[in-house]
Each structure stands twice: as structure tokens, then as C-alpha cells.
């Protein structure tokens, strides 16, 4: 190959590369019929450590050591927003997810959104009040109230979903009926159907610009990776003492725990 030819080839290659670069940067026109897959990964951690069910040992702000045997929560009503303010709300019927620590099949929320670059992510922790009161035929998939009392996410006696459930062992907890030093946090409450009561539905909005916006394209799956620091459940705006509150279920105190866990989500990075 002579050098002239080489230069021409190189120039062509460079042009080609530039052109493709340019194409890459081009954001597709927003079209809510032109959908691309987007996943949101919920990576549960405790402070600076990964969360390991049963085997991990952690310490809360009250100085109590604890381990976690069960952690699950509902994520719903996912919404994404572009820098120019354009918003896409995932259709409700496809927008309910159960996150279960220790189960790969329940570690992310997979949705479809129009091709585009998204700078903000919004979701609900829990189940909105409308769905909480819907006809039983609309309660399918993770919302099917057929789970057991042990791992179920539904209260039969006081119609409603358990939004967040965390159980574990701690020497700080008194011995319960089963002979274990167990703590149990079952948090729910959608505001009441025919009489007002506590509302623990939490909406979380995360800015993605600093850690990487999500570029949803049809030919691949963008993944928004969130770190979920469940240490904050006990150590947030309220310092929850396991000794003082070994069991929190449907009670006024549950509001403190819900306020705490609303702050446990942090955007770590995005894989585009």
C-alpha cells in the first residue's frame, strides 16, 4: 500500500469514526411508541459493606449489632425525565416490582421507556393508594395477595400491602415467643380507605447527571445501578433502637422508619 492510499484510508476511517461518534451523541426523537428496555438495579448494602443475609454483622447508630435474615420492598410507579423536562411515566400495569435480597430474580425493576437520554429517575417505595384499593382481579404478579404470613407482603386483617419488610437478629432485641432475639419491621399504610390513617407511601427522585445519565436505546439495555443502604433504615433522621423498638408494624412509630428508608437510595452509576 502506498502512503497516499494509506492517508486516504486513514482519513476515511477517521471520518467514519467521527460520523459514528456523532450518531452516538444524537439523541433519538422522543416517541412514546418507540420503546427501549431500561433496568433499575437495587443493590442492597449496609454503609460501606455489601449486605449478606444471616452471615453479615452490622452496627446501627444506636450502637446495636444486628444481622438481617429477610429484606424485601415494593418499588412502583417508575417515571423518567429528560434534561429538557420531558417526562415518561411507565404504564401502571407494568410498574410494580418486588425487590428481595438474596433472590436474583427480584433484584431489579425492568421497564420499557422511549429511546432517549434520561437525567432523573422517580419511583415510589410501596404501593400507591389507588392500586391498594383496586379490585382483586387487578392484583396479579407481585401484587397477588397470596403470599404467606412469613414472607408475604400483604396484611389480611387490615387490607393493604406491606411496603417494606426487614427482619433479623440482634442481641439488643428481647427474646420472642420463638426463643430468638429477633427484630421485625413490617412497614405499610396507604392512608386508609374509609377512614384516614398513616400514609407511608414514599416517592424518591434521584438525579442521574453526576453519576451517569441513562441512554435508553432499542439495541441494548441501559441499567441504572442504585446502592440501597439499608443501614439508614435504623440510622436516618430518626435513630431507631432495636432494644426500644424490636417490632414495628402498623403503628404510629412506623412513620419514622418509612422516613428513614426513603433516604436509603443513592445512584451509583449507569451502564449504557
Amino acid at each position: 500500500m502506498n502512503s497516499a492510499y494509506k492517508i486516504i484510508s486513514l482519513a476515511a476511517a477517521a471520518l467514519f469514526a467521527l460520523a459514528s461518534c456523532k450518531k452516538e451523541k444524537n439523541e433519538p426523537v422522543f416517541d412514546d411508541k418507540n420503546l427501549a428496555p431500561l433496568s433499575i438495579e437495587f443493590d442492597n448494602i449496609v454503609g460501606g459493606q455489601n449486605l449478606y443475609l444471616n452471615s453479615g454483622s452490622y452496627t446501627n447508630a444506636a450502637g446495636e449489632t444486628f444481622s438481617v435474615s429477610l429484606l424485601q420492598y415494593f418499588i412502583s410507579n417508575i417515571k423518567v425525565q429528560k434534561a429538557d423536562g420531558t417526562e415518561y411515566v411507565v404504564p401502571q400495569d407494568s410498574s410494580y416490582f418486588l425487590i428481595k435480597e438474596g433472590d436474583e430474580d427480584f433484584s431489579e425493576a425492568l421497564v420499557n421507556v422511549p429511546e432517549g437520554d434520561y437525567t432523573r429517575l422517580t419511583f415510589t417505595v410501596g404501593v400507591d393508594s389507588l392500586r391498594s384499593t383496586m379490585d382483586v382481579s387487578k392484583r396479579t404478579g407481585v401484587l397477588d395477595p397470596s403470599g404467606g404470613m412469613a414472607d408475604g407482603m400483604y396484611w389480611g386483617w387490615n387490607s393493604g400491602y406491606i411496603f417494606f419488610k426487614m427482619e433479623g437478629l440482634s442481641d439488643a432485641a428481647p427474646v420472642d415467643g420463638s426463643g430468638q432475639h429477633k427484630f421485625r419491621y413490617h412497614i405499610g399504610g396507604f392512608g386508609g380507605y374509609n377512614a384516614p390513617t398513616i400514609n407511608n407511601i414514599k416517592t424518591v427522585t434521584l438525579d442521574l447527571t453526576e453519576r451517569g445519565i441513562a441512554k435508553a436505546r432499542k439495541d441494548r439495555k441501559a441499567n441504572i445501578h442504585l446502592m440501597v443502604d439499608i443501614g439508614k433504615v435504623l440510622s436516618g433522621s430518626t435513630t431507631v433502637s432495636i432494644a426500644a423498638h424490636p417490632e414495628v408494624m402498623f403503628s404510629d412509630y412506623s412513620v419514622n422508619i418509612a422516613n428513614n428508608y426513603a433516604g436509603m437510595f443513592r445512584h451509583d452509576h449507569t451502564e449504557n
Binding site: T133, D135, V136, P145, Y154, G156, W157, N158, S159, Y193, N194
Partner: peptide, 10 residues
């Protein structure tokens, strides 16, 4: 505590 007969048997 239950607002819908369909949810009662649970």
C-alpha cells in the same frame, strides 16, 4: 379493617 368482601377470606 377490611374494605372489600373479596379480600376478606385472606
Amino acid at each position: 379493617g377490611i374494605f372489600d368482601l373479596d379480600l376478606q377470606p385472606i
